[in-house]
Amino acid sequence: MKDFQYARATSVTEAVRLARRPGAAFVAGGTELLNLMKDSVQAPDLVVDVNPVPLAEITQHADMVRIGALARMTDVARHPLVRDGFPLVSQALMASASGQVRNMASIGGNLMQRTRCWYFRDAAMPCNTRSPGSGCPAVNGENRWHAVFGGSDSCIKVHPSDLAVALTALDARVLIDGRPPVPIRDFYVLPGATPQVETVLRHGEMITGVEIPRAAGTSRYVKVRDRASFEFALVSVAVLLHTRHGVVQDVRLAFGGVAPKPWRSVDAEDVLRGRRLTDRLLDEAAEVAVRGASARRHNGFKIELLKRTVRAALDGAR
């Protein structure tokens, strides 16, 4: 890790003023930034500590709940407004990382965490996200973990945040200082030919929070992983399901572990909406959910696994 300047900001204005400098980076919980710096993936010249900025509140508004960017994962997951109003968010958070990490990590940092792709995290290997143009060894390499949706020949990373999957299902909006709220679906950017661009956030811009519009229904976050806890998702499914007399009024489906961004399946939602929730319909929806998925050498199982997980999640939510 190279030596850097460290500055503490106590307000958004100050934070942004400092972070606009070339080579500056925010630090909140540090649970991601420090790892990336230790692994020489990122090397900021100036680290702007935003922890003193008063942005940790969770507040209720007419038709939504607003969560400050510096609220910690633990506190968000346990907050009554979230636990009762958006259990999907609580579940996704509690299925993330470990107790210690959740006590440190902020919501803003969580949304900005970068892929766990092993080629990205090892600076000795090529990676188009880390060093554009160097190539993507995952495409023809060990890609069991990699994307079946939304990838390109330049990059098939997956986005690792569980929270982002839940927020995508909930149509949350990311609050960025100096800009109108950005729907989370538009916040993340697919790799295409420029995998180094991962979000719409520009250098120096600060996330101040997220807004989650109220939505009716029961929800379920199902996370499939290689060990029982403290592990990223192979595949995860967030479902919000609103039925009346067995008929689907509204449904949202978002997937993790399968794409460079949280993957929303509007097609599967359309199949479900307005119809009676039978076993046959679950099968059909699961089938549609994986339509368009494409596998590489080692990740074909994700398609089948996703299909089954979608079905199980819908079944669990009904």
Binding site: Y6, G29, G30, N35, S98, Q100
Partner: peptide, 23 residues
């Protein structure tokens, strides 16, 4: 040194954290 094992856990203001992931 990557927050993956928990051996460095300490309390900060009474809350458990991983001391390898904070400056």
């Amino acid at each position: 040194d990557r927050g993956e094992c928990g051996a460095c856990t300490v309390l900060v203001d009474g809350r458990r954290i991983k001391s390898c992931l904070t400056l």
